[in-house]
Amino acid sequence: MAALGDQSEQQAMASQPKPLTQSPPISNIVIVIAMQTEALPIVNRFQLTEDPHSPFPQGVPWVRYHGTYKHLNISLIWPGKDPTLGVDSVGTISSALVTYAAIQILQPDLIINAGTAGGFKAKGASIGDVFIVSDCAFHDRRIPIPVFDLYGVGLRKAFETPNLVKELNLKVGKLSTGDSLDMTQQDETSIIANDATVKDMEGAAIAYVADLLKVPAIFLKAVTDIIDGDKPTSEEFLQNLAAVTAALDLAIEQVIDFINGKCLSEL
């Protein structure tokens, strides 16, 4: 029979708060990529295979590639080709829909949105640079009514990864998203207000869905064209797409290797 003093000590120990246990390592990653040209090098690098039995609703063009790499289950989601016109389903609507569906079905620990983007040389961007995004916002949702204006901008922070940034020596910048490849004067004013270094057509929409469903999301953007340069955006984008996609592919591999075996708090 234990002595009274021992019982008191046991009771005191039982009343102490238990130390917080470290969260388990990341095991399930969803990569969302808007264009097939951007997606296929990553599919090949990680030897992912197309899911013959799509988990998505019948009739949608969304494609899932999946496989395992080291200790990670990786799903790469591409919104597919527009059923009518046969081009990549780019833009905020497709990206938001496919991200929502992927989260619901696949329950990822982490989302990575990877893709190409325009960059601003005034903010230090050069062709081929790969940026990890600190903040996402929209530049073409203009609602000039108090509070609705802030909703339109939709500013959201990406999941913070200070150790990843330091280890891989990544450039960090803010991202501005809109549904047009070109940039109007109004867009430019909003992008400057967003303090953006890079501009794309899906990031802020993915950030909105990830925030809504409380899934951490990080964003990697590789610069194909200099928006404040002297070449037409569409021409420069197509000229540099293949080479910049290769740089993005390499950066994704480095990021995945860093994530492997780590929990979210270690990123």
Rank of each mutant, 00 (worst) to 15 (best):
A3R: 11
L4S: 06
E9W: 04
Q11G: 03
S15D: 11
Q16N: 02
T21H: 08
P24Q: 06
V30C: 13
I31W: 03
V32D: 05
A34P: 13
E38W: 14
A39M: 06
N44K: 15
R45T: 13
L48D: 09
F56T: 05
V63I: 15
G67T: 06
T68W: 05
Y69R: 05
Y69N: 05
L72R: 06
L76S: 03
I77D: 03
G80K: 04
D82K: 08
V87L: 13
G91S: 06
S94W: 04
L106F: 14
I112S: 10
G115I: 07
T116I: 15
A137C: 04
F138I: 03
H139M: 08
H139N: 14
D140C: 07
D140N: 15
I145W: 12
L150E: 09
G152A: 02
L155D: 01
T161L: 03
K166E: 15
K171A: 06
S190E: 14
S190F: 14
A193D: 07
T197S: 11
A204G: 10
V209D: 05
A217N: 00
I218N: 01
T224V: 12
I226Y: 03
I227V: 13
S234N: 10
F237I: 13
A243R: 04
L248R: 12
D249P: 05
Q254K: 15
V255A: 00
I259H: 03
G261C: 10
L264G: 06
